[in-house]
Design a binder for these strands. Structure first.
Lengths: 104, 104
DNA sequence: GACGTTACTTTCCAATTCGGAAAGTTAAAT
DNA sequence: ATTTAACTTTCCGAATTGGAAAGTAACGTC
């Protein structure tokens, strides 16, 4: 039984996984939508997004929507790739666990 | 896009996932084996195992092996169930991410 | 039967991380 | 010029995580 592929610390945290899962499905998502799904406060979401942006995984774009200022978040190519790798690592984990016959 | 099933905090941490993945495949594993796979120090492994034991997820049994004292770790039924649920949550995450066409 | 060794366990401590509240910022609406 | 909406940053406190080192328990040895 060998060590599994490494999990990305910038994505592994639950709120970040949620955010990433959403972003993987869309070209961009609204701040408010992510906050709702990740179920965190403004400040916490903002901090997670900053961290992910710092890692080069997402970009934030402010755009006027109905006059109001909104922030749209998107994966960068790097972010998409990192998330894909992270998912693969999780898949590997699931797979390794799936041969769960009771052997010794 | 709805919130995904919750991830179990007692299992989500990387070292714990590794430990759980191993345990899911065997009836019991040696302390030393887990330490090697999780790639952590004695003290850290011991603490993770204590935490998982406290959660009712694993049991530790000391047994003499070749004269020497060894500790064998096993999932409880509850632990197995919790890990299964956790894996299902990860699967759901993977699945939700998998429709990753670029839609909006 | 004192002593060393092995195999953990617990304590100590520092570094991160995480979260919310509250204060700060900025651009648009009035 | 003010207000307001939509974040962002600061300011905490609490919890996690990790290693080193000290502690403990069970043998094995002499």
């Amino acid at each position: 039984m060998k060590p599994l592929p490494p999990l990305d610390p910038a994505l592994h945290q639950p709120a970040r996984l949620q955010i990433a899962a959403v972003l993987s499905n869309v070209s961009s998502a609204e701040f408010a939508k992510l906050r709702e799904i990740a179920d965190v406060s403004d400040s916490v979401l903002s901090k997670h997004l900053s961290a992910m942006a710092e890692a080069g995984y997402v970009t934030l774009k402010k755009a006027a929507m109905d006059g109001r200022q909104r922030t749209w978040i998107s994966f960068t190519r790097k972010g998409r790739k990192a998330f894909k790798a992270h998912m693969a690592a999780l898949q590997a984990l699931v797979a390794s666990a799936e041969q769960a016959a009771t052997a010794e």
